[in-house]
Amino acid sequence: MDIETPAALIDERRMAGNIARMQTHLAALGVRLRPHVKTSKCVEVARAQQQAGAAGITVSTLKEAEQFFAAGFSDMLYAVCIAPDKLDRAVALIRNGCSLTLLVDSVTAAEAVVAKGKATGLTFAVMIEIDSDGHRSGVQPEAPELIKIGQVLQTGGATVKGVLTHAGSSYDLDTPAALQALAEQERALCVRAAERLRAVGIACPEVSIGSTPTAIAAQNLEGVTEVRAGVYVFFDLVMSNVGVCTPRDVALSVLTTVIGHQPEKGWVIVDAGWMAMSRDRGTQRQKIDYGYGAVCDVDGNVIDGLIVSGANQEHGIVSRRNGSADESLVERFPIGARLRILPNHACATGAQYPSYLAVSSAGDATPWPRFQGW
């Protein structure tokens, strides 16, 4: 490939297979898929998901919301609890025709949304975040605060669109049984929260759940209306360790060039350091530690046992995962040779680049811009 390195490559064939797999699975379970576009932050990727049957998108920043709206996407869920000082940007989007749903998980945040709605004459569509696994944020499904938040949102300026949860602790699991159990817990607790709101007369039409591992593991989604998942579009080595894909499914890789050697150490030096791969070491705590990434040949085929074992800002060290000094790597990968590196965390690696190069089955590489910022 005549491409300057390091470069972020998307394998279009693999990506299409990942999209089809998730879409087919969730359609069979009778729910909508609202993909989380924070992984790619790329219009071309989101359009491929939309064309496969996705309904709306999930965003993690208002910059994403603004950029995707400008690109023609109108139905979006901002799945981060809204900060009061960001409400003016939400107002601008809605007034321009964007169907934007907001998220809160406290009475204070709900009061701020209601106040802004009344001041601007808008009625915000709002979801309440539910904590289904102690992972991060959200209100407990049995907490009195859940009802209080719902009641605040019914006082004008807003309406309760539904409840939302994210079982992020699924990233810590690695067996089908554990993933299926968490997927059921995620479903049941979010549905329970919706039932509690409905029982006191607060309409709660939507029940939104999702993480890539639980979405794939789910066997029953009764009571759920939509699933949000993001990293499935590319997958990565963390997901491989979780057990929901294999390295052969990972559609994002970093193209790199060999720039030197340390023969006595069995090291091959490449021009993809942590600025190219990101600092994410998510596999370090998992059953297989891939260092800063797994090494593939230039066509994307995994080379068994090779990883980027160390990284400086612009230098990566390719070596045996078991630490053995393999001097044969010097001859095998001479200076100027090209390799691809699979990322630990696709979202973090993608964030290092202003654009991707989408590689077709025919080998053509097309630039796909990527959003940056908040």
Rank of each mutant, 00 (worst) to 15 (best):
M76T: 05
S106H: 00
R34F: 05
S106M: 03
A83K: 14
A27W: 12
A109R: 15
D75G: 10
L77Y: 04
L77D: 01
C42T: 11
V31G: 11
V114M: 10
Q49C: 14
A79S: 11
K63G: 08
T58M: 08
F68M: 09
C98I: 10
E44H: 11
G56P: 07
T39S: 10
V43D: 00
V104E: 13
P84A: 11
V43P: 01
V107E: 08
T61H: 03
C81G: 05
V31Y: 14
A54F: 03
E111T: 03
G53T: 07
A71Q: 14
V43I: 14
V114R: 07
V45S: 06
T101F: 01
I94M: 15
R32G: 10
T39I: 03
P84I: 07
V31T: 02
L103P: 00
A65M: 03
P84D: 03
T39H: 08
A112E: 12
I82A: 10
A46M: 01
S40R: 00
K63I: 11
A27R: 14
V113W: 11
K38W: 13
F68Y: 15
A65V: 07
P35D: 09
L33N: 01
A52M: 02
D105I: 09
V91Q: 02
S106I: 07
V37K: 04
A83L: 15
Q51W: 03
F69P: 05
A52K: 06
K86N: 15
T108W: 09
E66W: 07
R95V: 09
Q50R: 11
V114I: 11
A54K: 12
S40Y: 01
G72L: 13
D88H: 05
K63H: 08
L87R: 07
R47I: 09
A110S: 13
L93Y: 00
T101R: 09
R89A: 12
G56S: 06
A27E: 15
G97T: 10
I57W: 02
V45M: 12
R89F: 01
A27D: 15
Q50V: 11
A90N: 07
V43Q: 01
L77S: 04
Q51E: 14
V91Y: 02
L87N: 10
L62D: 05
T39E: 04
A46Q: 00
T61G: 05
E64M: 07
L103K: 03
L93N: 01
T61Y: 05
L93G: 01
L87K: 11
S74Y: 08
K86G: 04
A83F: 14
L26R: 13
S74G: 12
A70T: 12
R47W: 06
Y78D: 07
V113D: 12
G30C: 12
V80C: 08
H25Y: 11
V80Y: 13
A27C: 10
S99T: 13
F68H: 10
H36W: 00
A83Q: 14
A109N: 13
L77G: 01
R34M: 11
E111L: 09
V104F: 09
T39F: 04
G72E: 04
V37C: 08
D75A: 15
R34K: 03
E66P: 00
V37Q: 04
C98Y: 02
A46G: 00
C81H: 09
I82T: 08
D85T: 15
A90M: 07
L93F: 00
L103W: 06
F69W: 13
L103G: 02
A112N: 13
A70G: 12
I57N: 03
A28K: 08
A112P: 08
C81W: 08
C98T: 14
Q51D: 13
